[in-house]
Design a protein around this nucleic acid. Structure first.
Lengths: 206, 206, 206, 206
DNA sequence: GATGAATGAGAATTCATTCAT
DNA sequence: TATGAATGAATTCTCATTCAT
């Protein structure tokens, strides 16, 4: 009697996830080009053949990995409440993000997400890109927060994109450090330092 | 007519410099691992043999390139006057840096410098690293500026390293965008946005 | 209601036949080496496991396929009446063969038969091979026809094998064209052109 | 002192020719898909690296090989004098071709030429293809010969393309036999048998 | 009979590096 | 200095075949 479709699906999912997790770690640590499929399969304890049973190519693995990472991140970022005061929203975002840096896997996710996303999404003309941002929750979220904060006069004036570029690049840099130093050596960043990027430098009252 | 020894040396240097410049561009654009020696030699219009005449290995090329880049950068950064008001010093630094982003080659230099330097120098324990920073002008410079600014009360409190991490990671991100968008599509960053990273949120008068 | 044993056998044969037909088509179109078992199983909508239930190996599939093809062909060719005038017999053969080229599957059969048979059976020394030909109906048939025609003086003189080689190679070439052009683009060959291979260049009266 | 460009060209040409000749033989004997680059390089006594120094891919090797083969064949076929009586021209062609079958390498060339050319050039609509034939000397030559012969009434009527298909397919079959039997076992084909394909089967006077 | 996961040997291709001149 | 041929190990990818269920 053959195994059921669910059985197969489960087997596939387990193995695929193992490979994806290994790739997530190795790509984050050493970069896509530096890591060979052999390293991935050895650490995932699977054969080359099986690897290509699940992924069409090394590039396909990266694509699927990024898809997973983006999906995961977008879902997580949903938790932040935008209706509240933008200062609090920003604080929530920073807490959320610094918490990510406490966990190995989450740091990899953060790093990969930013590394591959910054290449395409950040440097865009101006305001009308709002549509593009719809598929890009974190950037869109921050965009909204900044807009609101500027309207309320608590955030510094200027093109929100400038601040988005600075903020996410900084995050990427921090994630990079966190990855290569490890949890022990890495000194957690001060949330206020991150918040300060956006604050208007006059007296303000919430 | 036989060329003089100096002529030869000049020719030599020209050839070597061509290779270094090509590598600078290609490494910045596509990464060290992605670029093959064949690509470098082809674009430099030199043979493999000549390449290995000047460089012991691909890694050696990178080392020499980084050495050159670091040396160049350190020298340039010397121009900033530390004795002045830290706000002005910071502004000078930001002007200096944003000007770099206007020039292709200088952007490559900035990017490579930060990419390879951030990996080693930023995420260090705490204050006693001052010594390490001696070999690292830009970081040391900024460290001094921040220290002074904090003493004068115009810069936000907190570990200067946090701000250094944020600042240089942001710069790297900007350089990355600049490289991949090209001069035309890249929107120059607002200097005030960079400065704002460090400012205290009270009124200040220069 | 449980299916009878015969039902099962029929199902089995259906599955196996599907594989054989798929292989027939793919091998004819792209060649044995080019086609992978994965392609065959995918197009046959069966699993690798089932494939190896029916066939011991890829080579075994080919062997069984050829066996089937040869058997089929030999049986069909029996229909041609040898006792009649060799000119009529030849015409019958040509009609038979050009009719084959009107049907996709039959063209595959013809092509495979000739491709794999020409490699082994055609280029044999001389007359004593008559025995070998016993297992090879089409060649033997033609051999007989030619012999008779030569005796009657309507066929050109010379070693019948020469004409057999020419005739069947030509057929293979035509089948090849037919396969790769498809039914629409393929221009049917003139039967007289095929017959002409064997005719003596004097006047003849049927 | 570096070697001159001519030196390099000579070295390259020698090695490339060795590889091309090996490939010609192996592809003809066993087929493109069956032969691995490893087999080619081993028999050519060169490394994989060198192979890819000269050829971009296995497919590129085949392309270059076919180009060479076609060029060679087209040049050789030029020797046949078309202005003479078509019967003599046809005889010349047949002598030329059967001579080819006496030499190993030339047989490979003939076989490869026909194998890869028959796939594209033979089965074409009708008469207006004359233009296409311009790039295809052997087919064009035969076309002209047949046309002339039909006008003179010594060649059988009908679409010349039918006879071309039959003739060249037969040749390919003969070359195939010759390759796989070797020079010793292969029985040379009778030139008259080849000529007979085209002859009108009535009395004629030259 | 039937499924598809899993294997591993081998194929195509790349690339840093060495070598002869 | 300078050239580019040559190497060989490593890398990506394919595929016939086996296995557990």
């Amino acid at each position: 009697m053959p195994r059921s479709k669910e059985d197969f699906k489960e087997i596939t999912l387990k193995r695929k996830n193992t490979i994806l997790e290994t790739a997530l770690r190795l790509f984050s640590l050493y970069g896509y080009d530096t890591i060979s499929i052999d390293q991935i399969t050895k650490e995932s304890k699977c054969s080359h053949g099986l690897f290509y049973h699940y992924f069409n190519s090394k590039q396909d693995l990266l694509d699927q990995l990024l898809k997973t990472v983006i999906h995961y991140w977008n879902k997580e970022i949903e938790q932040i409440d935008l209706t509240q005061n933008p200062l609090f929203a920003l604080k929530d975002l920073n807490v959320f993000v610094t918490n990510y840096l406490k966990d190995d896997v989450k740091t990899y996710i953060l790093y990969l997400f930013l590394t591959f996303h910054l290449q395409k999404n950040i440097p865009v003309p101006k305001i009308k890109n709002k549509e593009k941002f719809k598929n890009n929750r974190p950037f869109a979220k921050l965009f909204e927060i900044i807009n609101k904060g500027q309207e309320l006069g608590v955030f510094v004036e200027g093109d929100p994109l400038d601040y988005i570029r600075i903020y996410f690049s900084a995050l990427q840099g921090l994630a990079y450090s966190r990855i290569h130093l490890g949890a022990k050596k890495f000194k957690p960043v001060n949330i206020d330092a991150l918040t300060n990027i956006f604050l208007k430098k006059e007296e303000y009252h919430v």
